[in-house]
C-alpha cells in the first residue's frame, strides 16, 4: 500500500490561508489504512483547522468527506457539485489523488499529506518501506527481500562494509534497522538458496524506474476503446 504522512498542521494552515470555504476530502483506501487520510483523519483535521482559524479570528467553513479511492474519477464524481462550490479542496489522499482531482476540477487542490512510500504494516502504528517500485523486480533471487528498497544504498551485491557486527545497517541510527543483505543471507539460508549469492548482479538498468520519467502501464486487452 501507499504510505503517507499528514503534513504538519502549521503547513496545512498556511496552505489554507487564503481560503474560507474548503472541502476536506479523504480517501478510504491506502491512506486510511496507514491512518493518514481516511474519514477519521478528515474529521479530526477539519475540527483542528476550524478551531485554529476561529482562534485566529478568521473562521473557515469546511465540508468534510471521504471517497473510496481518490485515484478513480468515478469515486470522485459524486463530489463534483460540492467541489465546484469550494474555494479549494484539501485532499487527504496520496499524491495520486491530488493529481487526479486536479486533472478533473478547476479549483485548487491542496495536498494534506506527504506521500512517502510503498510499505507494509510492521505492527499497528508502524509502517515500513519494503518496495521501491523500481520497475524491474528481482525478489525471486533475493529471498523475497528487496535490496533496492531496504538497503540504504540500493546495493545489488551487498552487504557493504558498513554492516555492523550485530547485523544492523550503519546508515540507520543506533542499530534501528537491520542490514537488508544480512536478512537476505539468512532468508536464503532458510530456503536453501544460498547459491543465489554466487551470482553477481550486473549494473542495474534504472530505465524502468522513475529516472526515465513518469511511467505508464497499459494492458491492451482491457482497453475499452478502439
Amino acid at each position: 500500500m501507499i504510505v503517507a504522512d499528514q503534513k504538519p498542521i502549521e503547513e496545512i494552515l498556511q496552505m489554507l490561508e487564503p481560503y474560507r470555504k474548503v472541502l476536506f476530502l479523504g480517501c478510504q483506501t491506502c491512506v486510511a489504512v496507514c491512518m493518514a487520510g481516511g474519514e477519521k483523519e478528515v474529521g479530526l483535521l477539519a475540527a483542528a483547522v476550524r478551531l485554529a482559524r476561529k482562534h485566529q479570528g478568521r473562521p473557515i467553513e469546511i465540508v468534510e468527506g471521504a471517497v473510496k479511492r481518490q485515484c478513480d474519477d468515478e469515486f470522485n464524481e459524486p463530489w463534483a457539485k460540492t467541489i465546484e462550490q469550494q474555494e479549494a479542496v484539501l485532499s487527504l489522499a496520496c499524491g495520486v489523488g491530488v493529481n487526479k482531482l486536479s486533472e478533473r476540477f478547476d479549483v485548487p487542490i491542496l495536498p494534506a499529506l506527504n506521500t512517502k512510500f510503498f510499505g507494509e504494516v510492521e505492527r499497528q502504528g508502524v509502517w515500513a518501506e519494503v518496495c521501491a517500485g523500481c520497475g524491474n523486480c528481482i525478489l525471486h533471487l533475493t529471498g523475497g527481500i528487496c535490496p533496492i528498497a531496504r538497503c540504504a544504498k540500493n546495493l545489488l551485491n551487498g552487504p557493504c562494509g558498513g554492516v555492523r557486527a550485530d547485523g544492523t545497517c550503519e546508515v540507520a541510527q543506533n542499530g534501528s534497522r537491520p542490514c537488508a543483505w544480512v536478512m537476505i543471507y539468512e532468508r536464503l539460508g532458510k530456503l536453501n538458496q544460498r547459491q543465489n549469492l554466487e551470482n553477481i548482479f550486473g549494473a542495474k538498468d534504472w530505465s524502468s524506474d522513475r529516472h526515465g520519467g513518469p511511467r505508464k502501464r497499459i494492458r491492451e486487452d482491457m482497453l475499452l476503446e478502439g
Partner: peptide, 10 residues
C-alpha cells in the same frame, strides 16, 4: 482569551 476569537474576526 485563548479560545475566544480576536475581535476583528467577528
Amino acid at each position: 482569551s485563548v479560545l475566544t476569537p480576536l475581535p476583528e474576526g467577528k
